[in-house]
Write a protein that binds this DNA or RNA. Structure first.
Lengths: 149, 149
DNA sequence: GTTTAACTGTTCAACTGTTTAACTATTAAC
DNA sequence: GTTAATAGTTAAACAGTTGAACAGTTAAAC
């Protein structure tokens, strides 16, 4: 592959990744709605899968400062979606869990997103989309390494 | 492919797309810096490639309301990166172009991003990454259709 | 055992990006 | 010539972010 070919690939990647990111976000916003922002949905998703977690953990996973997590959690806490519980052994730590309401809202939104993504995926050849996701996951790992230090 | 397989694929896609999005953003932020946010960089990129453009055009491309564009352009205009020029024939229209400073800043940042993306891409098999980008572009088109109406 | 250091989380000010709704100015339609 | 549509702006309100300073808690050093 020539230098020019690689340059073109890089150009195409930069353009398409930005475009897909924006379009996917607005598709979710328009078709899901659900009173949850994207970030809020993914926060609920993470806490739901983890069962419970801490602010520091979220800050690490989402790669933002802890104060950003505090602000986000507070907004969801005000809406009654998330519970804060202090650890009795180490009283610095606050565990975050979903409330009933938070869980319901999450499950509903998750189902809609699932259907949306499935309808997108079904428009592709199965082998193609499978390969795509595998490469995407490799990229995720490479990015983890690059970000690590 | 079974229903379960599809469900798993959907799960994996949702997880990996969110993860890559966050990691890529923070990698760019940490390694590029350059006083430009992601959105600002892509705005400069679009105007640079178009030569000149209007707020309405940017609103359409980025899929946000025009007032969001006004705010963003104003911030960059205050930094001396963008010029506003009224159309003499249709005085409602304002053309946006890069200033010298805006262009310099853009070119510098673009070069760094290019190198960054190239270093990522080079860690993949060439056929694999080429196929990946092609599928990514297909997905972009599918999203355009889905968002269209 | 007390002091010091490290850690968890919060608050506050400042910023970017976003939407909605009301508005100005200009052009097009009839 | 009045009415519609169009291009862009303004202002209020919100989500998400950083950075710096802070409180409270635990661990380490001595």
């Amino acid at each position: 592959m020539s230098v020019q070919d690689i340059k073109d690939l890089v150009d195409r990647y930069i353009a398409v990744s930005f475009s897909v990111e924006k379009k996917a976000a607005s598709l979710v916003k328009n078709q899901i709605g659900s009173d949850l922002t994207n970030d809020q949905h993914f926060t609920l998703r993470y806490i739901n899968q983890a069962g419970s977690c801490t602010s520091s953990e979220l800050a690490e996973v989402f790669d933002v400062k802890k104060s950003a997590i505090t602000a986000m959690i507070t907004r969801m806490w005000e809406k009654g979606l998330i519970q804060r519980t202090r650890d009795e052994n180490d009283r610095r730590v606050v565990y975050l869990t979903l409330t009933e309401k938070g869980n319901e809202l999450y499950v509903k939104a998750e189902e809609k997103i699932h259907n949306l993504v499935e309808s997108l995926i079904n428009r592709f050849d199965q082998a193609e989309i499978q390969q795509f996701i595998e490469t995407f996951e490799k990229l995720d790992k490479v990015l983890s390494q690059s970000n690590g230090q």
